[in-house]
Amino acid sequence: MIDLALIGIGTGNPDHLTAQAVQAMNQADLILLPRKGDAKSDLIDLRRAICAQRLTAPVRVVEFDLPVRDATDDYLGSVHDWHAAIAATWQAQITAHLPNGGRLALLIWGDPSLYDSTLRIADRLIQAGMDVAVRVIPGITSIQALTAAHAIPLNRLGEPVTITTGRMLRARGWPRDARTVVVMLDGNCAFATLPPDGIAIWWGAYLGMPHEALIHGPLADAAPRIATARAALRARHGWIMDVYLMRKEQAGAS
């Protein structure tokens, strides 16, 4: 059997790991670290640093090349194909490095439950007939890191919160009946497509890292500043992870 631990590691800051996460890392026989193939990306370096700082047991750490998703108009189809390719890659790594079973750990940005497909990919291993038991060790999400960085509550008093993606925001506009919206996975500044009147935005990139960037203000004023900062940061670092919260203001709301 493969005991697969999916470990939430927050936004890349080793201090974001819980004691449970550190324990799970040190109990593993193998930790797999994905390389995304971008020479400018330091995402693999962040995972390496987490292992260097938090591993106290002789855990084997193996790096592998992550398949690349095809950029096609069929978004869901390309994602399904990509997940299948990743599952096949995991299976090959498991066969090579844990042929007799054991404890495998994967380090997941944020938390495996929130806009992350690792659980769906792990399920493909089970559907393929592998003897896999999945455990999830929760981590700090980018949403938690964002609200903490801006020192704001996630929700208004007694109100719900809508979580969506940049792709959905661009395609459908402001979610119906929503007052507070959190947007993840927005690579194209979808906030700039909204009528800005009455909307405030709290944006953050590289949350919890030394080069954390934060911008807050009325959307009309903040949108061009965020777009400019985002492009500059991406060019400088070769990658960017960001998230933002928007609220429609209402007099007297708390």
Rank of each mutant, 00 (worst) to 15 (best):
I9R: 00
I143A: 08
W90Q: 01
G173R: 03
K40F: 09
G110Y: 01
Y75T: 03
L104H: 03
A222T: 03
L194A: 05
G8I: 00
P99G: 05
A52C: 10
A251R: 15
K36D: 15
D74Y: 00
A231K: 13
T165N: 06
H83V: 03
L146V: 12
G217V: 12
M241H: 13
L98P: 04
D74I: 01
L154I: 04
A71D: 06
I126R: 10
R247E: 13
M130Q: 12
A52S: 13
E63L: 04
D45Y: 02
I31A: 01
I108H: 11
D111C: 03
G204N: 03
I44P: 06
H237V: 07
A148M: 09
I137R: 00
G198D: 05
A21L: 00
R156K: 14
A192R: 14
R120I: 11
A96D: 12
T141W: 02
A49I: 05
M130I: 04
A133C: 10
I121S: 02
V132F: 08
D15T: 09
Q93C: 09
P160V: 09
I94L: 12
A171R: 13
R103N: 10
G77L: 01
D81T: 04
I86V: 15
I215F: 04
L76Y: 04
G101T: 04
V132W: 05
G77P: 01
N155D: 14
N188T: 15
W203D: 03
A213W: 11
W174N: 03
P34N: 10
L4E: 05
A213M: 15
Q23V: 01
D242K: 04
Y75C: 03
D45Q: 11
A21H: 00
S41A: 09
D73G: 03
A205G: 15
H150F: 08
L98G: 06
A105F: 03
D111K: 02
T165Q: 09
R54I: 00
I121H: 01
G37S: 11
A84V: 00
W90N: 05
A24T: 00
V62C: 05
G129A: 08
D81Q: 14
L219W: 09
I121R: 02
I201W: 06
F191L: 12
D186C: 06
E249F: 09
N188F: 10
G166V: 00
W109M: 00
I86K: 05
H83P: 02
